[in-house]
Design a binder for these strands. Structure first.
Lengths: 249, 249
DNA sequence: TCAAAAGTGTTTGTCCTACACCCATGT
DNA sequence: ACATGGGTGTAGGACAAACACTTTTGA
């Protein structure tokens, strides 16, 4: 049901109605909402976790048969973020654990023919759930850094979303969005390492996370491994430092 | 010529054309571009420089006679940033020294009646030039932190733009946009102090700026004051650290 | 008892802050 | 001369990287 929503149908066309003043040359553009959805999945060979994202195959021109970001035209009665969340659910059967507006792309020539302005969101979903997520013929998960040529300017959009995710993980506490409600510090560190693509010192990672005061330690521990059981932590929802007094999330 | 462009004319209305699939409920929204324009002007009494921005008086409903951000409907053939720069010039007769996309505001109820999605940019213009900038009956400069109630959600937008400017000045080299081609470190520090609203140590400011390697020192000095002449610096255009590999500027 | 990861302690270096101090000019 | 801001030096604290070390489990 969703492949038709991926930037295929020009709904609003240029309005030739002449109105007075400087707005005479104004005309409507088609407004779309797309979402870059990130999940963490273990690589087939290396078993290291890497970033993956779902794409939808286009079934119409332009760019028929190319892969594209999930999205669609903005319905008149739907909020921007709600539209992003809806296409996310339609594509993956998942709910976003984190959702933020990324950027609005509106270059005149980014879509052949009709001028399309796309408000793009980026989202994080839980890794484990993403593994068994629905994947039809027209939806497939790709490794984020090994993408084929995508439709429109979507390669550039994913590049920017990746940059945003990687820079934001370093100062904002969003990595837990890839995990369950409780998690060990090793799991959280694994997420950071996968996103940043570099190893982190367990000792220093523990201290910096604890110092940021965003985690609540539970009394539960994870046994079963052949080493000392790790304590389970929970994310502290209160207090949103770093983030603006307006938008973002 | 510009007062009519400030979010008054609904060009594209909902398109009732029924099309198949999930896009059936899709409809066009009116797409506008607005700009938050910052300049640095000396306060009347305190003589300290503070942030000011130009607003336009609305001459139509909704929100007739309220002050609003400069902007207008996006013309079909104009790039987003170009539209922002154009409205800036139309409003102030100035050219933007810095221009960046801020956020896209699209709440359903942000404009009475028609659904309006606004792609908002923020810009910096030169202080001295802004002082003698054209100001008509329908354009007036306001102190950024003493705004009257504005039309639509524009108070919230300015709040966010202020937050963005203040956080970005701390790590990105944009303060020179308020100054001429050459400037002394004291002038640059004055800009930082005005934006951040706190005093900075001249010695440490000098070092941190020099360490960032964004300034080229000229051989010129500014004489005339009754102290040692200050060296003039020029901004180094090369190398854009901190900023994304895609958008932003 | 040993491997392995959890978790703690300590050293080292770097960066930022505060502030003492010298430099060069106009009055 | 001396006041004023330009410009340099430097000690102290905060913080992060690197790494040695102890703890607790399963095999």
């Amino acid at each position: 049901m969703l492949e038709d929503t991926a930037q295929t149908l020009p709904i609003a066309k240029q309005n030739p109605l002449a109105v007075g003043g400087a707005a005479a040359s104004a005309a409507a553009s088609s407004l779309a909402v797309s979402t870059v959805i990130f999940a963490l999945r273990p690589d087939e060979e290396s078993h290291l976790k890497t970033l993956w994202l779902p794409l939808v195959r286009r079934t119409r021109d332009p760019h028929r048969d190319l892969w594209a970001l999930p999205g669609g035209w903005l319905p008149a009665g739907e909020e921007l973020a709600a539209a992003a969340g809806r296409t996310l659910r339609e594509t993956t059967d998942l709910s976003p654990r984190y959702l933020e507006q990324l950027y609005t792309f509106g270059d005149i020539d980014r879509s052949p023919g009709l001028r399309v302005v796309s408000v793009v969101y980026w989202a994080l979903v839980r890794s484990e759930v993403a593994e068994r997520a629905s994947v039809g013929d027209n939806v497939r998960w790709f490794a984020a850094d090994q993408l084929p040529p995508l439709a429109f300017d979507h390669n550039r959009i994913v590049e920017y979303a990746l940059w945003r995710l990687r820079t934001k993980v370093e100062y904002a506490r969003i990595a837990h969005a890839f995990l369950g409600d409780t998690f060990t510090l090793a799991q959280l560190r694994e997420v950071h390492e996968a996103v940043l693509q570099k190893a982190l010192d367990p000792a220093n990672f523990r201290r910096s996370i604890e110092a940021s005061g965003n985690l609540i330690s539970t009394d539960q521990h994870v046994a079963g491994a052949r080493h000392r059981p790790a304590r389970l932590y929970r994310y502290d929802d209160r207090a949103n430092d770093h983030d603006p007094p307006g938008p973002a999330l």
